[in-house]
């Protein structure tokens, strides 16, 4: 668990708080997304966890230990770090880039080699093709995959990601978000993602921390934040379509009724969310949708009214 206690940060020569009396608890194995307008202190807060920034007051505990007493280099080698511009070393091959932290930790050669192959496979890159390449020979998306693999190399418990999808085209971004989320779930890391993209924060985060002017305004699950914004700022930050955004968090299975025998309507996968279902219903002017399983068989029926009332039913549940 990561615990930030009464964190305040004032930069030398500035009379404003970059971060002001912030408390935050991040449970082990969960993903927290930090979001807010630029200059709100989200990146500064994240960088305190691997001591790239030092709090002016307050302390940061990782698994109960105050990290102020841990050597910064040793600490950073146990925390994965991914940044928007990736920051691959341009003069090193992909394999050497990925081996950065294992080499710092003095791993055995064979162990490092095995790990490089494993990681490239994990992030969907072919080791035989990629190992010897230089970063400039890769696309932006491939580079971010390598950056992600490099951060995972020494199997850290904590991953810090600073706008990891910010520099990637929208289509690749969605695919990488999906893949990275799956990988992070599979390897059960404690993850902090800084983002300025609300959809990304909702999609990636088990919890969202909304910040403004160095202060934490609300810290809760995406569902709870979308349902009950803490104040006017959060409400306007979420946008007027927050009700529709919430639908993206609800799976069609949660709302469906038993399957009907008359199959005249369109169908949607049981993996889909209500946002997609509503979109289809509106586009095709349907009264409802058949829900189909992976094998194509009907598993349920989702009437239009259930989608429209889902907001209230889920809140009460």
């Amino acid at each position: 668990m990561i615990k930030l206690e009464h964190i305040t940060k004032v930069y030398p020569g500035s009379d404003q708080y970059a971060v002001e009396n912030l408390d935050l608890e991040i449970e082990s194995g969960s993903t927290v997304t930090m979001i807010g307008p630029s200059g709100c202190g989200k990146t500064t807060t994240m960088r305190m966890i691997n001591r790239l920034e030092t709090p002016s007051r307050g302390r940061v505990l990782v698994d109960g230990h105050d990290i102020a007493h841990v050597d910064p280099k040793a600490l950073r080698r146990t925390i994965g770090y991914v940044i928007q511009q990736v920051g691959l070393f341009p003069h090193m091959s992909i394999e050497r880039n990925i081996a950065t932290v294992p080499r710092l930790l003095g791993w055995e050669r064979a162990e490092t080699e095995r790990r490089i192959d494993e990681l490239l496979d994990l992030v969907g890159l072919d080791p035989d093709v990629m190992r010897k390449r230089l970063p400039h020979e890769l696309s932006g998306g491939q580079r971010q995959r390598v950056g992600f693999a490099r951060a995972l190399a020494a199997d850290p418990d904590i991953m810090l990601m600073d706008e990891p999808f910010g520099a990637i085209d929208p289509i690749t971004r969605v695919r990488l978000q999906d893949e990275f989320r799956q990988i992070l779930r599979k390897v059960s890391k404690t993850v902090v993602i800084v983002t300025h993209d609300l959809d990304e924060a909702i999609k990636m985060g088990d919890r969202i921390a909304i910040m403004r002017d160095g202060r934490l305004l609300q810290y809760d699950t995406p569902e709870a934040i979308l349902a009950n914004p803490a104040n006017d700022f959060v409400e306007s930050f979420l946008g007027q379509d927050r009700a529709i955004k919430r639908l993206a968090l609800i799976n069609v299975r949660q709302m469906m009724e038993p399957p009907r025998n008359v199959g005249v309507t369109r169908s949607i996968s049981e993996e889909a969310n209500l946002h997609a279902a509503l979109s289809l219903i509106l586009a095709e002017r349907l009264d409802g949708l058949d829900i189909v399983g992976a094998d194509g068989g009907r598993v349920g029926y989702l009437p239009r009214e259930r989608v429209l009332s889902a907001q209230y039913e889920v809140t009460e549940a």
């Binding site: 691997n50 790239l52 910064p72 280099k73 040793a74 600490l75 950073r76 080698r77 770090y81 940044i83 928007q84 511009q85 990736v86 920051g87 691959l88 070393f89 341009p90 950065t100 932290v101 710092l104 950056g147 490099r150 951060a151 810090l160």
Partner: peptide, 23 residues
């Protein structure tokens, strides 16, 4: 040198000397 490269190097736990010689 791209500041992002140095930020990444530092963030992964490279020390002054390693950054100097390797980066």
């Amino acid at each position: 040198i791209d500041p992002a490269v140095l930020n990444a190097a530092k963030g992964m736990g490279m020390g002054r000397r390693e950054i100097l010689w390797q980066i």
